[in-house]
Design a protein around this nucleic acid. Structure first.
Length: 324
DNA sequence: TCCCAGGATCAAG
DNA sequence: CTTGATCATGGG
């Protein structure tokens, strides 16, 4: 990714020292959250392109300093015929990076909650990211099933390159947008598999795309109902089970009570809260919702990220993980 | 070669 | 209502 050319770009300071508590941009961006493809790393900053108010914006976000004393610097460009106000871009970034979530309250509320509070130090400043495109969030969640974060990200990038619209920016760079439902709806599973190597997930991706294209499925209205209702309706979609539904509801739809239970959370929660007994995944999910309420998504993120971080550190922890 | 990756589906018991 | 095989695919 080329640097943003200063002659075409603008910049501003997004935040300093406090955004409802600390912020660790690097942990946040590179924590494999299933909202959308991970931002592109460029030196010390992270680059992404989004459609905001019908304007394509390429932005680069950089954190100087520590999680508690910092400056967040934003540099951005739009195509020549477009423009966006700093206020709108700031609002967008605050949502996407979860800067509205008051981490001080989260840490304070569960400061005495033993296993969870152990993660507060190591992962301090980690925030829950939110997607801004429901279709993109749902597809990415589907791609993540039985897949590594690195690999589903690669598949998503291929999907963008093959079927997304190409946008050019005045700094000389270009970017492929995430495809729309109608860009995918006409493909056969075999075509999609060959182009992206997404494997058996192609059938699900195409099915969902066609349902949206045919107006059999309206994600906006689905999301605008209760958590329970939305969850139930999502399970009817082919290739969407409990974990994918919760990922979509948490990261895509911003339902903070959703707590996706993947293999990691399953193992961790069984070890931490059920003395090694293997509880079924739905039981873990409702346990997390009951225990952590509107912070369930955050609790899940912190437990997940802390345990994962340990795995990729010194010791490999196969099978029965004892990360705590 | 087998196992795993931020799982879901289907058939059998 | 539970359990186990199967599903594509790339990396360790």
């Amino acid at each position: 990714m080329p640097e943003l050319n200063p002659s075409h770009s603008r910049e501003f300071i997004l935040a300093e020292d406090d955004v409802n508590g600390p912020l660790n941009l690097e942990e946040t961006i590179s924590s494999a959250q299933t909202t959308e493809p991970e931002w592109i790393r460029n030196e010390q900053s992270y680059v992404d392109v989004e459609k905001i108010n019908d304007t394509y914006v390429k932005y680069s976000v950089k954190q100087n300093g520590s999680s508690d004393h910092f400056t967040i610097l934003v540099e951005y460009v739009t195509p020549p015929s477009m423009s966006i106000s700093q206020t709108d871009l700031k609002q967008h970034l605050e949502k996407v990076l979860g800067l509205g979530d008051d981490l001080r309250v989260f840490y304070e509320t569960f400061s005495a909650d033993k296993p969870l509070s152990l993660t507060f130090g190591p992962v301090r400043g980690l925030r829950l990211m939110r997607g801004t495109n429901l279709y993109e969030s749902l597809i990415c969640s589907i791609l993540s099933q039985n897949n590594s974060a690195k690999r589903w990200n690669g598949i998503a990038r291929l999907l963008m390159k093959q079927y997304g619209r190409k946008i050019r920016f005045p700094d000389g760079s270009s970017w492929f947008l995430f495809p729309r439902p109608k860009d995918i709806a006409g493909l056969t599973p075999r075509e999609l598999q060959k182009a992206t190597s997404m494997g058996y997930r192609a059938k699900s991706v195409i099915t969902v795309s066609r349902m949206i294209q045919n107006k059999e499925l309206d994600l906006e209205s689905l999301v605008n109902s209760s958590y329970e209702n939305a969850f139930e309706n999502l399970l009817h979609l082919y290739g969407v089970g409990p974990k994918v539904a919760d990922c979509f509801l948490l990261y895509g739809a911003g339902q903070p009570r959703a707590a996706p239970v993947d293999v990691w959370i399953h193992r961790i929660a069984n070890g931490l809260y059920f003395k090694g007994r293997k509880m079924p995944r739905p039981a873990i999910a409702s346990f997390l919702r009951d225990r952590f309420g509107c912070w369930a998504g955050y609790a899940q993120l912190y437990l997940f990220h802390y345990a994962r971080r340990r795995k990729f550190g010194t010791a490999k922890l196969p099978r029965h993980v004892s990360a705590f």
